[in-house]
Design a protein around this nucleic acid. Structure first.
Length: 941
RNA sequence: GCCGGGGUGGCGGAAUCGGAAGACGCGCUAGCUUCAGGAGCUAGUGGGCUGAAAGCCUGUGAGGGUUCAAAUCCCUCCCCCGGCACCA
């Protein structure tokens, strides 16, 4: 009688075993077989749920697997312990965030132990400990020394709810990443890290990260947002000064007919001061007040205000007006743009709205043009002439009984021919125009091209003379826009041959940008430029619970960094934390200047917690070193991290910051590698009820409830079995019973045969196995191979299913043998059961340790080598060959392997099959396709 | 709008070097067991036709194509998820 699978008793028995035996302590000096496995460390808060568990279960499974494969695995754990939730909770409960944080840490540790998730706790790192944040401050000082940390006044993101400024990366869709409150802007003097100095390397080195998910690299690429183009200087008209713009399309410069600047642009201030234009003031204030979210919406109506100031287009000397416009962003490029309405959609909309000239300067690559011919504007016979010339057109009768012509033209030659015909047929008092590949107006006295702002004025004036109905139009484009038929050809944003561009006219599209930049450089009004979307990292936080920025302000000496030997700048020990943070603690603020010993004040901002986590992976190597932040010698041996695993929500924030800090430390000579994480795996979230588990949504499945109800082993197996680990997945309270049942079956299976197996010899001679023994042997080897490869490649779900197949196979084998089909081969069974336990142990360590002991072993599972398989055992004697007729399966052949490669033999046997014969009646065999060892396809007619 | 990822039974998912679609598990159906447990065992389970079986038809978001053969390759479209989004 086998005792029932009592997971509670078993898990309790083994819970502390691995830690006591020290299996998870890495030998830091042995780098030969080193493997640095790292899970992103958690922000300790409340209880862990099964979604958090996924991350650590993957890590523990892999660690156990690699330990059994002979690796010296370092898998450390620590706490990202500074942060707002702790502080907010502390303010609310009038307590200290420390207590809240350490309580959570204690609970997390307990839950890790409950899950059997093991770490080397000697290497535990806690970012809110002075022994840690001392070195975060050291990092700040080093960056400051190198000019990579600087203080500047800037318009920064501000979260009113968290009462602190935020980095760009922490603003998601215009709202605070932490609390979801819409972010506002404030002009503040803050500390920044100069991540933009590394923009190019952060972008370029993504190429070298071969083992990172493509989507993460893509997100970073987008975030860095590199664009190449030119910087062009526009002199102000009638006064000193100039406006610089960045453009990716310098080839369209000749078409710049106005400029637009962001409402926050410094020039706006100057204009306001000189012009005292109250309506401009109102406009600017109104636009700035509108939140980023609304302004950011692409559908938002483009609005502008004419400042009355003018600039000179440097390429053609054209005077163009300067607008303040809501669609120009201060944070990108120079905060000012040259507007080319003919080739930029936003500029086009704006030009139509405000009646600004639109001058095409890039030829349409498709060569299409159109013309609309009003009835009565040409002599009779025009349509006939077009027909003869092979020009396409359609007609539509108008109210007065005339016929309007809708002409579509393709190519230069046809357009020229058409213009000649119009000239010949045009009646006095009329005009006609061609738009698209050419913008030409044919008047009785001659043809005018829309090739400059001056031409726009002349053509407009002439049209007004001829047609009273267009007298209210402000530009030629407004007239054309009225004709529905033209609309799709009035604007394009493609690359193409330059036209109407002075001496550069005729430059082909491929050379246009390059040649224009050369031209600009030659004329001293511009140069090639690269622009990045990435902004410097704002690290100041007006909060208490973070690492104080080690800076002192002295009236005499100015900004003075705290000397290294004075670190850490300790967080003042207060009983209760308030909203004022450090600024509200005078004992902290008042200090003496390290240089002149005079009275001075401390910086009261703390650092963004992402600074803490940007270097923690270095600290694990020497976590308690009092002398230095990390041991360069060992760090250079152990890093980059071999395998990093965490949530995709850190794709930009944490991963980008860490890459930046690593590069900066490398440049300072502390590290000899460029990238901190060689391989990255981003695991998916666990959902319930279609939504990510979260306390606020109340859809949490807690680890303790699952461990209590099913046991940690079941939780682990189910977590790894439920789907591919990179995918988001739904936690199913019913599906978990499958994993529970599986472990029960394993329990039963092993316990049923303890007696026979325990004393039996372990050696088997595979060559002498026959029948079902041989099949079992093959199955065992197949499963070892599959599970091993699957674990290595993060396919835990299929690894588990392979083990389930092995268990099913073992039950079948025993049932068959027991029914008299043969005798159970005890050494074989022993081998299979033992290998099963070893293979299952990374997934379900508790039950495996217990079974291993029951199987008579005195050493721990982890002291054994991972089972190996024999390639020869996978060979089969017979193959099943699929027989298809016209690609459809009609039968099967079981054939000895030697013959399975023999095309003629396969064909002969296939044709003998009954169902195949039937299929072939009344048909002629056309062709036979043989895939040796697999399939034969008979093609018949 | 742009860029990624994806769409396979009632459900989670296998199979992607083009070669048996649906491994494994959940659920469901029938039967057996009764140590009544949060049980276990056996058989079946994509849909349809046929009394059952054999057999046939059909089937991987939709449509088309390439091929002896397509979940897998190509084209068009639809839907879902994620990222970026007036980026000049």
């Amino acid at each position: 009688m086998v005792d029932r699978y009592d997971f509670k008793r078993i898990e309790k028995k083994w819970r502390n075993f691995w830690e006591e035996r020290g299996f998870f302590k890495a030998d830091i000096e042995d780098v030969e077989h080193k493997l640095y496995y790292l899970n992103m460390f958690p922000y300790p808060s409340g209880e862990m749920h099964v979604g958090h568990g996924r991350n650590y279960i993957i890590g523990d499974c892999l660690t156990r697997f690699y330990l059994m494969n002979g690796y010296n695995v370092l898998n450390p754990m620590g706490w990202d312990a500074f942060g707002l939730p702790a502080e907010n909770a502390a303010i609310k409960h009038k307590a200290h965030p420390k207590k809240w944080t350490y309580d959570a840490i204690a609970r997390y540790k307990e839950q890790f132990r409950d899950m059997g998730v093991q770490f080397d706790w000697d290497r535990e790192v806690t970012t809110c400990e002075p022994e840690y944040y001392k070195w975060t401050q050291w990092l700040f000082l080093k960056l400051y020394e190198k000019g990579l940390a600087y203080r500047a006044a800037a318009l920064v993101n501000w979260c009113p709810s968290c009462a602190t400024s935020l980095a760009n990366e922490q603003v998601v869709g215009g709202a605070c990443e932490r609390c979801g409150t819409p972010v506002t802007k404030r002009n503040l003097t803050q500390w920044f890290f100069k991540i933009t100095a590394y923009a190019e390397r952060l972008l370029r080195d993504l190429e070298s990260l071969k083992e990172w998910p493509e989507r993460v690299k893509l997100m970073q690429r987008n975030w860095i947002g590199k664009s190449e183009g030119a910087e062009v200087e526009f002199k102000l008209a009638d006064r000193e000064g100039s406006l610089k713009v960045f453009t990716t399309r310098p080839d369209t410069l000749w078409g710049a007919t106005f400029m637009a600047i962001a409402p926050e642009h410094p020039l706006v201030e100057q204009i306001l001061k000189e012009e005292r234009d109250e309506r401009l003031q109102e406009f600017v204030e109104r636009v700035i007040r509108v939140s980023e979210i609304e302004r950011g919406a692409a559908e938002a109506e483009k609005e502008g205000y004419l400042t009355g100031w003018w600039a000179i287009n440097p390429v053609n000397g054209e005077r163009i007006p300067i607008y303040v416009a809501n669609y120009v962003l201060l944070g990108y490029g120079t905060g000012a743009i040259m507007a080319v309405p003919a080739h930029d959609e936003r500029d086009y909309q704006f030009a139509l709205k405000y009646g600004l000239p639109v001058i095409p300067v890039i030829k349409r690559p498709d060569g299409l043009a159109k013309s609309f011919v009003l009835p009565g504007s040409v002599r009779k016979g025009f349509a006939e002439a077009l027909r003869k010339a092979g020009i396409e057109f359609t007609t539509r009768p108008d109210r007065e009984g005339g016929e309007a012509l809708y002409v579509t033209l393709k190519g230069e030659a046809q357009i020229d021919r058409y213009i000649e015909l119009v000239k010949a047929y045009l009646l006095p008092g009329n005009w006609n125009e061609v738009v698209g590949a050419r913008f030409a107006f044919i008047f009785p006295e001659g043809v005018m091209e829309l090739d400059s702002v001056a031409a726009d004025r002349e053509i407009l004036a002439r049209c007004k003379e001829l047609e009273p109905r267009v007298r209210d139009k402000r530009t030629v484009m407004e007239i054309l826009w009225e004709v529905e038929f033209y609309r799709d050809l009035l604007f394009h944003a493609e690359y193409g041959e330059m036209i109407n561009s002075g001496e550069l006219s005729g430059t082909p599209g491929e050379a246009a940008i390059k040649r224009t930049i050369a031209w600009l450089e030659g004329h001293g009004c511009g140069k090639a430029a690269v622009n990045y979307r990435l902004r410097d990292w704002l690290i100041s936080r007006q909060r208490y619970w973070g690492a104080p920025i080690p800076i002192i302000y002295c009236e005499k000496c100015g900004i003075v960094p705290v000397p290294e030997e004075d670190l850490p700048v300790l967080l003042p020990d207060v009983e209760v934390v308030t909203k004022e943070g450090l600024a509200g603690i005078p004992e902290f603020v008042q200090t003496t200047c390290p240089k002149c010993r005079g009275p001075a004040q401390r910086e009261t901002d703390t650092m963004d917690t992402f600074v803490d986590s940007s270097w923690y992976y270095l600290r694990y190597i020497s976590p308690h070193d009092q002398e230095k932040p990390f041991d360069s010698r060992l760090v250079n041996k152990w890093l980059p991290v071999d395998q990093y695993v965490g949530g995709v929500e850190h794709a930009i924030l944490h991963l980008m910051y860490s890459r930046f800090i690593t590069k900066a430390l490398k440049d300072m000579g502390y590290l000899d590698f460029d990238e901190p994480f060689a391989r990255l795996f981003t695991q998916g979230m666990v959902c319930l009820g279609g939504q990510a588990m979260s306390k606020s949504k109340g859809n949490i499945v807690s680890i303790s409830e699952v461990v209590e109800g099913y046991g940690a082993d079941t939780q682990r197996v189910y977590t790894l079995f439920m789907g591919p680990p990179e995918k988001d997945i739904e936690w199913s309270p019913t599906d978990i019973s499958g994993s529970s049942r599986f472990l029960k079956r394993v329990w039963q299976l092993v316990n049923d045969h303890l007696e026979e197996v325990r004393g039996a010899p372990g050696t088997i001679d595979p060559a002498r196995l026959e029948g079902s023994d041989r099949e079992l042997w093959r199955e065992l080897n197949r499963v070892i191979k599959a599970a091993t490869e699957d674990i290595r490649s993060f396919h835990f779900n299929t690894a588990v299913s392979a083990l389930m197949e092995l268990v099913n196979g073992l039950y079948d084998y025993i049932a068959e043998a027991g029914a008299g089909a043969g005798r159970i081969n005890i050494p074989l069974l022993k081998r299979a059961l033992e290998d099963l336990v070893l293979l299952l142990s990374p997934f379900a360590p508790f039950i495996c340790e217990e079974l291993w002991e029951r199987l008579g072993h005195r050493e721990a599972v982890l002291e054994n080598r991972w089972p190996s398989y024999d390639e020869r055992a996978l060979a089969v004697e017979e193959r099943e060959i699929v027989v298809q007729v016209n690609g459809k399966v009609r039968g099967r052949l079981t054939i000895p392997v030697e013959l399975a490669q023999d095309q003629e033999e396969l064909k002969r046997r296939a044709l003998e099959l009954g169902p195949i014969k039937r299929q072939l009646d009344d048909h002629r065999l056309e062709k036979v396709i043989v895939v040796p060892g697999k399939l034969i396809n008979l093609v018949v007619k």
